[in-house]
Design a protein around this nucleic acid. Structure first.
Lengths: 230, 230
DNA sequence: TCAAAAGTGTTTAATTTACACCCATGA
DNA sequence: TCATGGGTGTAAATTAAACACTTTTGA
């Protein structure tokens, strides 16, 4: 019994996933999701938080963490019958303290590359990443978790860029602003402003108390997805 | 490692869940979800289908089956550390062949009674049923699975009664009809009609090829839920 | 011809969409 | 004063909600 983590962030306008390089067989040298065996007396989410810390040196308490799915194909691991429960974690663009520890092999990789790139992921991890992507896209529609990708203070435009990176298409800035600012409890104004390199300063918000988005923010037609459709 | 099944149907206008009476300790005599241990070489969904057949004599191939969640609290089972993966199954109002077998103790119970009734469910099964209810409510909004509750041929009014039972409030018949009949691929007309005891005959449909509902069927404000809110 | 349920139409309000336009800043 | 994003307003189109009305059947 193991847990695996699909950790997403948005860097340089792209959705990226945290991968580690496997040091042992099977799939030695392959990129894989961070994860590992569940210990006695641990819940699955405790195990996920522990592995997160051990393998990537990230503190899960700053991240949004939710259970994704259990994968149980008896052939999914050549070592034998290993069932894994995948977790989805969403967080801001954090530096990975690469020094020393097990976290040495951890690095952010664009999701498009992880899914369509030349080097395939270990085990069934490509399937898991794809499921995580679908879940993240859907969560952005119905909840306020997009703010989990942002630092504590953020602008409406930064939040919009999160949506654009995860959904894979552009949004109308003015209509997006109207929706999120009118959505009760999504954003809490701080009074602060961020002065950009160029252009008018933007108001700073922090995330509000609401977690559900009613009505949802619809991702309807728009442009096709770059890294695979639903 | 076990699987448990939340099997819902709509009977007599009510959402009901299939419960079995436990024959062994712990919780002997208590109502519980059908389920059991996963065997070697089985996937979780295979185990769910097998337990379904063994404990309730239902053939899962006629049911909608999806994974719900993994429950891993070390204290959830007094016998020790047992992680369970819950499955949600949705099906038409089927008779339970109670004869002989293990299925003897299986019976349909209104969800309201299972959650708020006098006799508490075994283990953390009340939590699992509540999660299943929330998932079912949400699935009805975004997918065409409501048809899984209906027999092969059904009328628009029958489908509406499914929605009303699961969501717990009444829907406007004419607006409901417009939405589902205009939704591409939800319903396939058969040309047949059902003659009721009283009133005008209704057109019969079978489920169409679509599984996703875009746009979703919104359950917005309406009346409060009788068996617990979100 | 009446009751009951199926099914259609219409009116009004709310929401979405597209896009024009104004604002605040550094260079 | 210009370029660049932040931010506001608005008209047109679409969709949702409420409800009146017509149709089809058995009794």
């Amino acid at each position: 019994m193991t847990v695996d983590l699909v950790i997403f962030t948005v860097r340089q306008g792209q959705l990226q996933v945290l991968l580690v390089e496997r040091g042992n067989d099977p799939y030695r040298g392959c990129a894989a999701l961070p994860g590992g065996f569940v210990r006695d007396g641990e819940t699955l989410s405790e195990a996920a938080l522990r592995e997160l810390l051990e393998e990537t040196a990230l503190d899960g308490r700053n991240l949004h963490l939710e259970q994704l799915h259990a994968y149980s194909d008896p052939a999914r691991d050549p070592r034998g019958r290993i069932i894994t429960v995948a977790y989805l974690a969403l967080g801001p663009d954090l530096p990975i303290p690469a020094a020393g520890t097990d976290a040495a092999g951890a690095r952010w990789t664009p999701v498009s590359e992880a899914l369509d790139g030349d080097a395939p992921l270990a085990f069934d991890h490509a399937v898991i990443v794809r499921d995580g992507l679908e879940r993240a896209r859907s969560q952005l529609e119905h909840t306020t978790v997009a703010a989990a990708f942002c630092p504590e203070l953020f602008t409406v435009a930064e939040l919009r860029r999160i949506y654009e990176a995860v959904w894979g298409f552009q949004l109308d800035p003015s209509n997006f602003r109207r929706k999120v600012t009118r959505s009760e409890g999504f954003l809490e104004p701080t009074g602060g402003r961020r002065i950009p390199e160029v252009g008018r300063p933007a108001a700073l918000y922090r995330r509000g108390r609401a977690s559900l988005l009613v009505p949802p923010l619809l991702r309807s037609s728009e442009v096709a997805h770059p890294y695979g459709a639903a």
